[in-house]
Design a protein around this nucleic acid. Sequence first.
DNA 1: TTGATATCATTTGCATACGAATGAATTTTG
DNA 2: CAAAATTCATTCGTATGCAAATGATATCAA
Lengths: 152, 152
Amino acid sequence: MSEENLLKLVEAEEPEENDYHLQEQVGFILRKAHQRHVSIFAAHIADLTPPQFAALAKLHDVGETSQNQLGSLIAMDAATVKGVIDRLKARGLVELSKHEVDKRRLLVNLTAEGRDAIERLIPIARAITQETLAPLSAKEAAIFMRLLAKLA
Amino acid sequence: MSEENLLKLVEAEEPEENDYHLQEQVGFILRKAHQRHVSIFAAHIADLTPPQFAALAKLHDVGETSQNQLGSLIAMDAATVKGVIDRLKARGLVELSKHEVDKRRLLVNLTAEGRDAIERLIPIARAITQETLAPLSAKEAAIFMRLLAKLA
DNA sequence: TTGATATCATTTGCATACGAATGAATTTTG
DNA sequence: CAAAATTCATTCGTATGCAAATGATATCAA
């Protein structure tokens, strides 16, 4: 046996994969899965982005909070949440007020229109979740959600 | 039994969940998992973003291609890939040329510096993948990757 | 109490991400 | 072949997303 073939055998013992397959990396697939979800979301809810929806849904859940606090509840940093809230305010879906005691805080709350909007959209959002998970069986989806939560 | 309690019983038969829990929606968790991955990536590779890395890795894999073709290989639309390639070109990691036959096409290729960079970074990228999946056991990670791929 | 720290919000700068419109070049078709 | 349709790339506008710097206010600690 040639020296070259001996080398191949040795290498074969440790299946040392030398190629790098971008398509198999968790970060790349995570990005694609997220893209697909956003696309499904947009097909059902055209006039609101997922971050805007998240802000409204969380305000509906917890009621009035400060802008920063809301940001931490929906995983957005201060700069990002400001832009989202500004746009929701411009559309009359949220209203802002100053905290009476702590003058640093900017309180955010749903307007009546914002409350109507989010209550109307929540059933649609449930359908979006279902459609996003549609490639998986119910059992697979349950497993996936459990593992995904561990990663996030 | 009061009418009210009877109603509660009837409702209990169908476990109709009335609350909407943003934190349990696949889109929200997907976004957070992606955020965490990007953060891990940045901690290991400070001078390149994940999309920039993806472009270099794919060029290393397939060699010279058109800008649009590269975009479809790494899941970026034409407008996005242009910005990514512009920045890689400004840093001397890729070079552009015109397709001889089809004058619409803009060919992209690694420079020597770009090739050095991506070859140096690939082992680090493997570590990033590992760290991203670290909250899962090997078996869980395998299952997760299979299900995630179905979603993406 | 006041000086150091920490928190809240804003702003700037940079980098995706994508829809829509445009123009140039190519391919398809009648 | 010539018109229609398609493809490739660019540009514009809007919306996250985050680091870093800044200013205002609050809290902590010596």
